[in-house]
Design a protein around this nucleic acid. Structure first.
Length: 247
DNA sequence: GTCCAGGAGTGAT
DNA sequence: ATCACTCATGGA
């Protein structure tokens, strides 16, 4: 993170870290948030309660914007190990060796990717997403104030700007709002959340393709039910997907 | 070989 | 506005 390799471990109630300073670790892990209070606020029914019991202590990281954006651009219609492999491939080619461990490479800035070609991204196994990555990088590089404005603008405006990028649809935009822009009321609908909502809250969601309007309905259900920190509810539900989706 | 994975773009109705 | 189809890739 931040060009540095940071190591974290937890023993008992103590968090140990090296490679960074305490303010940074506190910020990245969002340790300033009163998690108990937040979880009490989203704990509104037995389903979310079971999810909270499963993962109490889980926090939403404050991820760097560009890294988060490219990661979710790599995450469409695929699985998490494949996303990780793509992100690491990108870092391996264009990232600087991390301070603290030269064997690890930091995720590159948009500027560092300025000359990466479509074929370069294909070589990182992005497949059909390669042209999207290429033109998203171009769009961001061509507007130096893009990142700053995105962080300053309100939720809906930021969402619209994200979705204007090729390869970023409603789901990826909602993930970026939640993980990088601090909009904790964002509620991304992926295949697993859809399944969980269908099973426990919205039976209608079960069948058919998830059209834009059905996506919107699912998203606003989540935000209405769980409130200002619905994104945390989403993360806890996702993390309990094995528990909540089995027959 | 088939199916699925933290979806999104395109083109025809 | 709402389908139907397609898009690489890897693991089960």
């Amino acid at each position: 993170m931040d060009g540095r390799c940071i190591r974290l471990s937890q023993r008992g109630g103590l968090l140990h870290y090296s490679g960074s300073d305490e303010p940074f670790v506190r910020h990245y892990l969002a340790l300033d948030l009163d998690l108990d209070r937040l979880l009490a606020a989203i704990d509104r029914d037995p389903v979310i309660e079971a999810a909270i019991d499963r993962s109490r202590g889980l926090r939403v990281l404050r991820q760097p914007l560009f890294e988060c954006l490219l990661s979710f651009l790599c995450a469409t219609n695929t699985n998490i190990p494949a996303v990780q492999s793509r992100v690491e491939a990108i870092a391996g080619v264009w990232g600087e060796p991390a301070v603290g461990d030269e064997n690890v490479r930091a995720f590159p800035s948009s500027t560092a990717l300025r000359h990466a070609t479509e074929d370069d991204f294909r070589a990182c196994r992005l497949g059909y997403r390669a042209p999207y990555a290429r033109s998203a990088v171009t769009a961001i590089c061509s507007d130096p104030s893009w990142e700053g404005e995105l962080s300053a603008v309100p939720h809906d405006e930021a969402r619209a700007r994200l979705m204007a990028l090729p390869g970023i649809g409603p789901k990826a935009a909602d993930c970026i709002l939640l993980y990088a822009l601090g909009h904790l009321d964002a509620f991304p609908i992926d295949v697993w959340i859809r399944r969980i909502l269908a099973r426990h809250y919205l039976p209608d969601l079960d069948t058919g393709t998830l059209s834009p309007s059905r996506y919107e309905a699912a998203r606003s259900f989540g935000r209405d039910r769980f409130g200002a920190h619905a994104g945390y509810a989403q993360v806890y539900l996702f993390n309990a997907r094995d528990l909540l989706c089995r027959d």
